[in-house]
Write a protein that binds this DNA or RNA. Structure first.
Lengths: 262, 262
DNA sequence: TAGTGGTCTAGACCACAGT
DNA sequence: CTGTGGTCTAGACCACTAA
């Protein structure tokens, strides 16, 4: 095993109160920030680091796990630990639910993905009737049962978002909305055809660390949070006609909003 | 040391492929989800878990560190590991920059905090002129130098948000905006008095894990992401008159937005 | 096959909280 | 003082990757 190039990383300060593994993490973080390790580049192996700093392997692993929890690096079994590249982000514009986007034949996700040269996919499509939760009843105005449409969105094979739409049965049952493929323009186009003119949407945005099943479904690297968006669609009568619960890989999204000043 | 109450946690499956520390984490996570450990309750100590599962201490610590990285638990040195309580969240309404909020004497943060019975504080107020970054120049329409106003917001002593406003010098220099206290209604009220009628705001929302300095400034527990919001204020001439860069503790915020359907 | 990270053990000493 | 978590060592064996 070759030694580390001199000057790539510094040395420890034995007089410091700061724990050794934190000092090592600091050095690696700084080296990444300074560009000494490019995006996607391999960091020194655990063996090289134990050698360089003269510490035990657990100490080095502790340091590396810090970088991973910060989202700066990710380990690949048998290959090494790499500086995590920032994936292309999907920008959700503030006019993403404007009428004109519904008039096209394809769904917003598909149109948008193809516009930036990505290959869009939708899978895990489940459509079924479910009992409503108290929270959903509150948002939809108390319906006992709801139609749930679950799906997962992928860009170039990478999962980026899961979404579940909930609709009151008195609106959706027996309509194309209850079909796996609701047709051109998606369920919002169908809602309008059914006489529910859409007026506006309300979104609630949160961020948190993913649950284990979300890590799996979205294939999230360590240190990547999720953005949790709950969107309610209102028709021109002021009725909530759909609630969409969305979980997005935070490293793949930027949400844009426009706020009135008056 | 007393043994764990029987039935509180299950046993390991030695035939499982799943790593032991993950199985232990799973059991604790499930017990928390089922309410066997309430919010704020103390989890079994490392020694008790070591004993119960018959594994080494590092294995138990590994399991506990998973729960912490998920934001489910937090360790307190010398006391134990506790189920993390969810702090009260601050909800940012979609009309938070409406005219009527500026007409009041106090800042939005103060008014809102007092409305829900919390004690608001603002500290680390720094106001100074800085060189503009390329990104800021792009957003503000290329100004070489900008006025930067940095501050940190606290609720009941807990830091929840840091914010930095950037304004072009030709607008802000020599005005109350360059003073530590810009007066009633904040800098938006002053901008309007200076002839910059506000038209709308654009926000970009991201989520990520905090950098070490953000962990410190916001006193973030492990497993808590930050919400990063960059807001640009536009006047009725279409000019960007302010950019506000905000970092929020994600466990303390829900952002609400209203989107047009037309 | 050699190099990598993943898991696990069985200790040690330290710092902090509460009695 | 006891019990707690924080740090660190020096090993071991395993699973995965790539040559």
């Amino acid at each position: 095993m070759a030694a580390l190039p001199p000057g790539l990383l510094g040395t420890l300060d034995p007089t410091s109160d700061r724990a050794v593994f934190r000092q090592i993490a600091d050095q690696l973080r700084e080296a990444i920030a300074k560009g000494r390790f490019a995006e996607g580049a391999k960091l020194p192996s655990e063996a090289e680091l134990t050698d360089h700093f003269g510490v035990s392997r657990m100490t080095v692993r502790n340091a590396l796990s810090i970088l991973q929890s910060e989202g700066l690096a990710s380990a690949e079994h048998g290959r090494g630990v790499f500086v995590r590249p920032r994936p292309p982000v999907r920008r959700l514009a503030s006019d993403r639910f404007a009428q004109r986007h519904r008039d096209q034949g394809k769904s917003g996700f598909t149109v948008e993905a193809e516009a930036v040269g990505s290959r869009p996919e939708v899978d895990s499509l489940v459509v079924r009737e479910e009992r409503s939760t108290p929270e959903m009843s509150a948002r939809l105005g108390s319906a006992r049962k709801v139609l749930a449409r679950r799906r997962r969105y992928l860009l170039d094979g990478k999962p980026v978002e899961t979404a579940t739409s909930y609709l009151p049965l008195d609106i959706a049952r027996g309509t194309p909305i209850a079909e796996p493929n609701p047709g051109p323009g998606g369920i919002y186009a169908r809602l309008e055809e059914l006489g529910h003119r859409l007026d506006h949407f309300e979104e609630e945005v949160r961020a948190r660390m993913p649950a284990p099943d979300e890590v799996k479904t979205l294939r999230l690297a360590p240190g990547v949070p999720v953005i949790h968006v709950v969107r309610t669609a209102f028709d021109t009568d002021g009725r909530a006609v759909e609630v969409c619960d969305t979980v997005m890989a935070a490293d793949a999204y930027v949400l844009a909003y426009r706020l009135p000043a008056t």
